[in-house]
Amino acid sequence: MKKETRVQKKQRRRMFMLRLFFISLIVTAMAIFAIRSSFFKVDQIVASEGNSVSKEEILKAAGISKDDNILIIRKKAIIERLESIPYVKSASVKKKLPDTVEIEIIERKPYLQFENGYSFAVIDAEGVLLENSILKLKGIGLVKGIGWEYIPDGGSIIDKTQGTSILDLLNDQNIAPVVEKIEVIDLSDSSNIKFNLFNGIAVEFGPMNNVKYKLKVLGEILADVEKKNIPTKMILMNKGEHPILVRDDI
């Protein structure tokens, strides 16, 4: 194989740079054309509507206009705006060329509500404050006897309630089904917490210690009551080691 001369190497490098320049020029021209072309203008925005977050609220937070070019839309920025909505746990954005944007959200679900002045502070199972509602939400347990300083919507009650056993009710899928059966949790007497269940049964829970274990026991009792159709008025968990079932037909 004949060895290249210095002049030939120089010519080859010059040709390579020339080709690279023209390729870059073509790519730049195509990019400018694509950005300015109406072919890639957003024509359709598809958004999933949740139970608590409307389609209109999603579209407003996303901030996408039908005049926007789909190629330069920043998905990360849109997701950050969507996830700033307290009820939105996570969001995803997909571009479908040439002109469609799809938005999907996963909502946070109300788990408990707290008396908070003249409103009701609604939280999810992770302790995130979803809203301060003027009206009490139906079907969601109400906690009485605990409060905190101001928390913005989307903030967490965890930092404000550190050191309290109320945190034992959060972030636990094993006890969540039991908590969701409770209509009222009265914390006004720390030595004897009282529950009123949605099915009308009253529970004297005792102090808020071993909360997770006691709630699991309560869940087993309620399952047995329901299975055997036992007419029950009250469950006493503060009278010794074993719970006492007070029947409604005695």
Rank of each mutant, 00 (worst) to 15 (best):
V53L: 04
K181T: 10
A31C: 13
Q113G: 07
I157N: 04
S156W: 05
L129T: 01
M237H: 09
E149W: 02
L71E: 02
P243N: 11
S48I: 01
I166D: 08
E220P: 00
F33C: 06
F39T: 13
Q173R: 13
L97Y: 15
E107R: 02
N210A: 10
L82G: 03
K60C: 00
P177E: 11
I185D: 06
E115F: 00
A176Y: 10
R13C: 00
I23W: 07
S191F: 05
L142C: 10
Y118T: 14
E83I: 02
E126H: 10
G240E: 09
K66S: 03
E4H: 09
T161I: 14
D224I: 07
I123H: 07
V211M: 11
L218F: 11
V184D: 00
V203Y: 12
K227V: 00
I70M: 05
T232D: 07
E80N: 09
I123R: 04
L130K: 03
I182H: 07
K239Q: 15
A121N: 06
A77Y: 06
E57Y: 02
Y87W: 15
D67I: 01
L130W: 03
L18Y: 03
F22A: 13
Y111N: 03
N174V: 14
V178I: 15
G50R: 03
Q113W: 08
S37Y: 06
I185A: 05
A62H: 03
V143N: 06
L112G: 08
G163E: 04
S52W: 13
K160T: 07
L170H: 09
S37A: 10
L137N: 10
L25Y: 05
V217L: 09
I158M: 11
G63Y: 01
D248G: 14
W148K: 10
I45W: 01
D68N: 04
R12V: 02
D168I: 06
S65Y: 05
R12K: 14
I103S: 01
L20C: 03
I182G: 05
F120H: 07
F39W: 14
V46A: 05
H242N: 12
F33G: 07
I79P: 01
N210S: 13
M17W: 02
I182Y: 05
G139Y: 05
N69I: 08
G240F: 07
S84Q: 04
K10G: 11
A125E: 14
N174F: 08
R81A: 04
Q11W: 11
V246R: 05
L82K: 03
V225Y: 09
V93R: 01
K212E: 12
E126Y: 11
G155W: 08
S38K: 15
I79T: 01
I35Q: 07
K10L: 13
R108L: 02
V93K: 01
V217K: 08
E102H: 01
I146Q: 08
E107T: 05
A125K: 15
M15W: 06
V203F: 12
S119A: 15
K55P: 02
E49I: 01
G206C: 05
G147P: 00
K76T: 04
A176E: 12
F195W: 10
K216S: 10
S133R: 09
M30A: 15
I72P: 06
